[in-house]
Amino acid sequence: MAKIIKIASTTTPRNANPFRTSRSVATNPFKYSNFEGNTLQFADVFEGFEPKNISKLKMIAASVTGTMNKIKSGFEPIVNFVNRVRGGISSAWDYAKNTSVTDLPGMRTFSRVMNTPVTDLPGIKTINRVMNTPIEINLLSGITDSLSGIKTGISGRISSINDNVTTFGKELSDKWTALVSKIQGSRISSDLTVNELEELWKKEIELEVGGAV
């Protein structure tokens, strides 16, 4: 039995199964591809396939050319835009040159307003009527009363202020007198005359009486 298996293994083609791959034995994956039952050999399929020796200078030149093409394609919309603007300006100039001023939009309305008399403008009649209306006596009387009230109010305020100023002045005078007396009191001596001492004493009495009141 063992001999039979061994003979079979030797007679059977070694790679009969086309899907059977082995990393150790199969190196070309296209070697076993079946094109209508024909097996293509490696040398037939990749005939003449060899890496070409391209110079680096050519590669750089090709790259620059491609870049320039891209830039050119980017400029094209700008050029078109400029051309359109130029065309628009030209059209506007032609329109302005060939159109009369009187035909401009809004000129007819403007001309109509300018030719209308001022007295006919809307609102002028109302203003004219108000300006020509005589001022009534009652209005003058009301203004007179208002002025009289303002005068009375101002007079009252001034009187109140006057009273306040008077009171303030009296208080200020008393405090000033007290201050002067205090300063003078600090240098009371027999060098002063009797009359001066008498006046100082009287002021002290007045301050005491005023303070007591």
């Binding site: 007396s181 205090k182 009191g185 009371i188 001596s189 027999s190 002063l192 009797v194 001492l197 100082l200 004493w201 002290e204 005491e208």
Partner: peptide, 13 residues
């Protein structure tokens, strides 16, 4: 009042 005292002293002098 201290001022009165000083005035009296000054007058007594």
């Amino acid at each position: 009042n201290r001022n009165v005292l000083e005035i009296i002293d000054a007058l007594s002098a």
